[in-house]
Amino acid sequence: MSFQSYVIRRIGQVIVTYWAFLTILFVLFRVVPGDPVSMHVQDLGAEAREERIAELGLDQPLYVQYVEYLRQLARADLGQSMIYNESVWNIIVVKFWNTIILMAASLILAYAIGILGGALLAWYRGTAFEKGGIVLTLLARSSPEFWTGIVLLGVFVFWLGLFPVGGMRSIGSELATGVGRYLSWDFVYHAVLPALTGAIYFLGTPALLMRNSMLDVLNADFIEIKKAEGLHPWNVLYKHAVRNSILPLVTIAAIAVGMAIGGSVVIETVFNWPGMGRAMVDAVNNNDYQLAMAAFFLMGSVVILMNFVADLLYVYLDPRVTYE
């Protein structure tokens, strides 16, 4: 199979996955008894309820609702928030970027530390350094994000007073729009702890996987030849051993994106981060199903997209892959 037809096939699969995801979303929020929509309308008076139901199109047969739901999504119409009486799109778009930036920072940090650390763990196999490193890594992975967050808050905020307790910008700081929001020291100052919290939780998997994969690669004949070639040891380590060991991490990275996006609900709650995750928790608590659904929809979309990108990246990075 050629690369093109491989990509086309993957795109086909992604479309199927995406459609299934949208359907699950519809079922969860509209069909199952006790779904958020019914909960939303049951709080209203009898007349208001009728009205609201008609307004949301809920008096239509399910398949009509389903088709309408897909049509709306296709038009990037996420509906009206039931609580804020505002377009969900307007509410969520900024929160979406707030979350993406935070999680990207976490993941980049986690992977940088994980790959470097995992490689060193393998390189220094059998030493006290390796032992200590493994214990620390497992410790980091054993601590739920909310707990790591609370510990960091306790130490760096309540005790040392080094960082703000939460939020994304200081009160009274200049309100920037667009990308400007993320280009100030004030933002970095607020983002350090939440990003670190995520990084600590996420770094365990890449570090341990990297170590295992490195141990395999270090036993390979070609590493010995590269040493025999008289290349600098750091070249052997990074250009050859690390480069080969990284391959299995690519697939895992997509899964990590999924974990990070899902984990945003926790981190954003602990640090009061105005992102999609916290919006989703609040929306569920307020029975604002349109908003909750939109958050869920965006999270899933990012994960599906990243899985697809990771697949292509893998094929690109490993010349041996046959497209099957």
Binding site: T17, A20, I24, L28, F29, P36, G263, V265
Partner: peptide
């Protein structure tokens, strides 16, 4: 493909929604 879908669902948000629905 079903496994892919399970990978597409964000873990904690999914569990939260399900718990809200099921109790």
């Amino acid at each position: 493909r079903i496994t892919d879908i399970a990978y597409a669902l964000p873990f904690l948000p999914f569990v939260i929604v399900l718990v809200v629905i099921l109790g």
